[in-house]
Simulated assay, not measured.
Amino acid sequence: MAAKSETVASDHVAAHPRAGQVRLLLVAIALAGLLVAPMFLYPIFLMKLLAFALFASAFNLLLGYTGLLSFGHATFFGGAAYFTAHAVKVWGWSPEAGILLGVAGAAVLGLVMGAIAIRRQGIYFAMITLALSQMFFFFCLQAPFTHGEDGIQSVPRGHLFGLIDLNRPMNMYYFVLAVFVIGLLIIRRFVNSPFGMILKSIRENEQRAISLGYSVQRYKLGAFVMSAALAGLAGGVKALIFQFATLTDVTWQMSGEVILMTLLGGIGTLLGPIVGAGLVVTLQNYLATSDVPVTIITGVVFMVCVLLFRRGLVGEFFATKIGKKLGFRAES
Rank of each mutant, 00 (worst) to 15 (best):
residue 251 T to V: 13
residue 145 F to K: 08
residue 145 F to Y: 09
residue 157 R to A: 01
residue 197 M to E: 11
residue 218 R to E: 15
residue 247 L to M: 04
residue 230 L to F: 08
residue 139 F to W: 11
residue 187 I to A: 10
residue 228 A to G: 08
residue 201 S to I: 05
residue 245 A to F: 03
residue 210 I to G: 09
residue 203 R to W: 14
residue 141 L to R: 04
residue 210 I to W: 13
residue 245 A to V: 01
residue 233 L to N: 10
residue 258 V to C: 08
residue 198 I to S: 05
residue 202 I to E: 03
residue 221 L to H: 11
residue 207 Q to T: 15
residue 239 A to K: 01
residue 258 V to T: 03
residue 172 M to H: 10
residue 175 F to D: 00
residue 224 F to W: 00
residue 156 P to C: 07
residue 212 L to M: 15
residue 215 S to L: 12
residue 252 W to Q: 13
residue 229 A to M: 10
residue 145 F to D: 02
residue 243 Q to A: 14
residue 216 V to M: 12
residue 257 E to R: 12
residue 220 K to M: 09
residue 222 G to F: 00
residue 170 M to R: 05
residue 230 L to A: 08
residue 222 G to D: 03
residue 196 G to A: 08
residue 259 I to C: 14
residue 171 N to G: 05
residue 209 A to T: 01
residue 213 G to L: 07
residue 171 N to V: 00
residue 165 D to T: 02
residue 139 F to Y: 12
residue 191 V to N: 07
residue 184 L to D: 02
residue 186 I to F: 14
residue 251 T to K: 13
residue 225 V to S: 11
residue 229 A to R: 05
residue 230 L to P: 14
residue 219 Y to P: 15
residue 218 R to M: 15
residue 239 A to L: 09
residue 221 L to E: 02
residue 160 L to D: 01
residue 150 D to M: 09
residue 186 I to P: 15
residue 168 R to Q: 13
residue 169 P to F: 01
residue 243 Q to V: 09
residue 256 G to T: 04
residue 165 D to C: 04
residue 243 Q to T: 14
residue 224 F to I: 00
residue 238 K to S: 12
residue 235 G to H: 05
residue 151 G to S: 03
residue 143 A to P: 06
residue 217 Q to T: 04
residue 193 S to R: 09
residue 143 A to Q: 01
residue 203 R to Q: 15
residue 141 L to S: 06
residue 189 R to T: 06
residue 214 Y to D: 11
residue 216 V to N: 06
residue 167 N to Q: 07
residue 242 F to M: 12
residue 228 A to Q: 03
residue 141 L to E: 09
residue 177 L to Q: 07
residue 209 A to R: 01
residue 193 S to L: 08
residue 239 A to V: 03
residue 237 V to K: 05
residue 220 K to T: 01
residue 157 R to D: 01
residue 145 F to V: 03
residue 236 G to F: 02
residue 210 I to S: 12
residue 248 T to E: 13
residue 249 D to R: 01
residue 172 M to V: 00
residue 211 S to P: 07
residue 238 K to M: 15
residue 199 L to D: 06
residue 178 A to R: 02
residue 218 R to N: 14
residue 253 Q to Y: 14
residue 142 Q to A: 09
residue 222 G to N: 02
residue 189 R to S: 10
residue 209 A to P: 07
residue 196 G to N: 08
residue 158 G to D: 08
residue 239 A to I: 01
residue 198 I to V: 15
residue 221 L to P: 15
residue 202 I to D: 01
residue 191 V to E: 06
residue 219 Y to S: 03
residue 155 V to W: 07
residue 223 A to E: 10
residue 198 I to Y: 04
residue 248 T to F: 14
residue 226 M to G: 11
residue 204 E to M: 11
residue 172 M to S: 04
residue 140 C to Q: 03
residue 207 Q to Y: 13
residue 157 R to Q: 02
residue 255 S to P: 12
residue 180 F to R: 01
residue 213 G to R: 02
residue 163 L to Y: 07
residue 211 S to E: 11
residue 154 S to P: 00
residue 244 F to E: 14
